[in-house]
Each structure stands twice: as C-alpha cells, then as structure tokens.
Design a protein around this nucleic acid. Structure first.
Length: 151
DNA sequence: GCCAACGTTGGC
DNA sequence: GCCAACGTTGGC
C-alpha cells in the first residue's frame, strides 16, 4: 500500500463535500498533468491512503484522509466540449486523461502548510519542496506515520 | 494581485 | 530537438 497527497481547492471540492457525496466518494477528474496522471494510472492501488489537501484557500493544509476506491479509468470531462477540462486531442478510442475514485475516510483538524513546514521530520516531503506545483504527490510511509501522529 | 517556478507549445 | 514565449499553479 502506498500513500499520497492530493490537492483540491475547497471552493471547488472540499473534504466536507467528499463526506457528503454519494457513497462518500468522488471521481478525481480534471487532472491535466502527465506525472500526476501517471501516478494514478500506474501506481495507485485500491486502499491506498490519501492526504486530502486544501489548496488555493485562506489556510492551505491537510484537511482529512481518503482512500483510493476505484482504479484509474478515463476522465469523462476530456470529451465534454463544455467542460473546462475538455481536451480536443483526446478521443474515446485513445483517451489521454484518466483518474481514480477516492473515498472519504475521515475529516481531521486542519493541519496548515505553515505547520508542516515547521517539522524537520517532514522537510523532505515533496509537497514542501520549492516550486512544487504537482496536484498529486507520493508520501513516504515514514512521513505519513509522522503526520498521523500530529493530526 | 503579485510573482516564482515550472510545464507546455510551437517555430525553427 | 532546442528553447523562447506563454500559460498555469498556488502561496503569500
């Protein structure tokens, strides 16, 4: 089992939205970065644990825990001309973008980015590296364990 | 709203 | 295949 961090803008979709969603799960649609896509497509397994991270908001940080509940499959929004995520180069025969489903596990206290940065045990987290913009990053098992201990 | 960092695009 | 220009992300 692997561990991940996935960013979502809470104005768009928050941990509370996930808790309220049908079956408490959602398709993680809209990822348009190849590395993030490849993590979902090639590495995510059912039951993998996910730090649900709120980004681009007043206090960015970890807001809850989720798990991978469905393996990668094509992202419907790439075919939808009305969608912000429409990709004219994607076809149903040759889809370019896939995503997993994630399911609510629990809401946690908000663990702010600023606090994550204070812990030297987390200094190597990919999220905290300079210039990191990737919306999906792997989390080291030791980092995961440490974060659980301070949540 | 600013801007650093980084990914993507497209001309050559 | 290089790389400048451009667009996007996301913290501040």
């Amino acid at each position: 089992m692997r561990y991940w961090l996935m960013k979502s803008e809470p104005d768009e979709f928050s941990i509370d939205d996930l808790a309220r969603a049908p079956k408490k799960s959602t398709a993680w649609f809209g990822v348009r970065n190849y590395l993030a896509r490849n993590y979902m497509r090639d590495q995510m397994q059912l039951g993998d644990r996910v730090l649900f991270y709120h980004s681009s908001c007043e206090v960015p940080g970890v807001a809850g825990i989720a798990e991978v509940s469905k393996l990668a499959y094509p992202d419907e929004t790439q075919f939808d001309k009305k969608s912000d995520y429409y990709d004219p180069k994607a076809t149903r025969d040759n889809p370019r973008w896939v995503h997993v489903d994630v399911k609510f596990v629990k809401k946690t206290r908000l663990l702010p980015l600023s606090e994550l940065r204070e812990h030297k045990q987390l200094a190597k987290m990919q999220l905290l590296q300079r210039g990191n913009r990737l919306s999906i990053t792997p989390v080291d098992p030791a980092e995961w364990k440490y974060i659980e201990s301070i949540l």
